[in-house]
Amino acid sequence: MLLKINGQNVMIPEHIRTVEQLLEHLNIAHKLLVVERNKSILSKNSYLETVLFDGDQIEIVTFVGGG
C-alpha cells in the first residue's frame, strides 16, 4: 500500500491495516505524538480502529522535550 507520510511516498506492507499497526511498524507507537489522516487529527483512542487506505496522507508529529 502506498501512503504519503510527512510528505514522502512510503510503501507499507499490505498486512498493515490500521494507524496503530502503522505506528508499530515505524517503531513510534509508544512516543508522545499526534497523527493526522487526510487532514483530520485523530484521537489516540481511534488509532486501533482507524483503517488505512492506499493513497492516504498521514502526518505524524512527535514531541521532544528539552531545554
Rank of each mutant, 00 (worst) to 15 (best):
M1G: 13
M1R: 08
M1T: 14
M1Y: 10
L2M: 11
L3H: 02
L3E: 02
L3Q: 02
K4S: 06
K4R: 14
I5D: 00
N6W: 05
G7M: 05
G7Y: 04
Q8N: 13
Q8G: 01
N9C: 06
V10Y: 04
V10P: 11
V10M: 08
M11T: 12
M11K: 10
I12L: 01
I12P: 10
I12H: 04
P13Q: 04
P13C: 06
E14T: 00
H15P: 01
H15V: 01
H15N: 09
H15R: 06
I16R: 05
R17E: 08
R17V: 15
T18K: 04
T18M: 05
V19S: 08
V19M: 05
E20P: 01
E20S: 13
Q21V: 06
Q21T: 01
L22S: 13
L23T: 11
L23Q: 08
L23K: 09
L23S: 07
L23N: 08
L23D: 00
E24R: 15
E24H: 11
H25M: 03
L26M: 15
L26K: 13
N27M: 09
N27L: 03
I28A: 06
I28Q: 11
A29T: 12
A29L: 09
A29Q: 06
H30L: 03
K31D: 14
K31S: 12
L32Q: 13
L33W: 06
L33T: 02
L33G: 08
L33V: 00
V35Y: 08
R37P: 09
N38T: 11
N38P: 04
N38S: 02
S40T: 15
S40D: 15
I41S: 02
I41F: 03
S43L: 09
S43C: 04
K44C: 00
K44Q: 01
Y47K: 00
Y47N: 07
Y47T: 04
L48S: 07
L48W: 00
E49I: 15
E49D: 15
E49P: 00
T50F: 14
T50H: 13
T50C: 15
T50N: 11
V51A: 15
V51H: 15
L52E: 08
L52G: 09
F53T: 08
G55F: 11
D56N: 01
D56V: 11
Q57M: 00
Q57E: 13
I58P: 01
E59G: 01
I60E: 03
I60S: 12
I60M: 13
V61G: 04
T62R: 14
T62M: 07
V64R: 05
V64K: 12
V64I: 15
V64C: 14
G65S: 05
G65T: 07
G66K: 13
G67S: 12
